[in-house]
């Protein structure tokens, strides 16, 4: 495992911890999109089916369990926790799941490595992850005044994707025959979705100001 991959995974882990910190200690999920969190839960549930069939490493297994557990517990907190759920911006978080899930599933039926249940679901999870952030970005755009932890959360998620791209470039040059179009293209699309957010994030850092997206 190279340094970019490790840094990417740790950044992903940090993003989840920041979100759990906000939810668990501040008891607030204001500005967090339940739709995005539910999509991530679907992403991990469909991608990590190989937990039962293939063993890669202890690191791999532990991280998968952490991402599965955290994504489902975040959804639980926002939907069921008696205090947290009150802070959920339900009226603002209006993105429809099936607008995202359905096209991804159809795409996975068309473009996959092998036509088996596991491979189609794996491709589906990659396509879905690529666009799962959209409800969150729409919500940020609508709430405009973004609190620090929410801003950090989205920033860390974007950084994780950027580091994965560096990881693929590194692997391409260091490993023989490392070519993986489905992963690369969906990963690139996913990272590009953060470009606009990154722009305003760095602008706000430069001005020492609060992160505010334009109307």
């Amino acid at each position: 495992m190279n340094i970019f991959r490790l840094a990417g995974d740790l950044t992903h882990l940090a993003s989840v911890l920041v979100l759990l910190l906000k939810i668990h200690t501040i008891k607030s999920c204001a500005g967090i999109s339940l739709k995005t969190q539910e999509l991530y839960a679907i992403v991990f549930a469909t991608r990590y089916l190989d937990l039962f069939t293939t063993y890669i490493s202890l690191y791999n297994t532990l991280m998968k369990l952490i991402f599965l557990g955290s994504s489902f517990s975040i959804v639980w907190y926002i939907r069921k926790h008696k205090i947290v759920r009150r802070s959920y911006d339900k009226d603002q978080d209006t993105f429809r799941h099936y607008f995202i899930v359905l096209p991804c599933f159809v795409l996975a039926l068309i473009i996959h490595e092998k036509f088996t249940v596991r491979e189609v679901l794996w491709a589906f999870s990659l396509y879905l992850e690529a666009v799962a952030i959209l409800p969150q970005l729409v919500l940020l755009q609508r709430t405009r005044n973004i609190d620090n932890l929410t801003g950090q959360y989205v920033f860390l998620l974007g950084a994780y994707r950027a580091l994965y791209i560096l990881n693929w470039i590194y692997r391409y040059f260091t490993e023989p025959h490392f070519v993986h179009w489905i992963t690369w293209i969906s990963g690139l699309v996913q990272t590009l979705l953060y470009a606009d957010f990154f722009y305003y994030y760095f602008q706000s850092m430069k001005n020492n100001g609060k992160l505010q997206l334009p109307a």
Binding site: D50, W122, R171, I182
Partner: peptide
Amino acid sequence: NPKTAAKDEL
């Protein structure tokens, strides 16, 4: 194995 290379990622 190039087919499964990305499967060791999260």
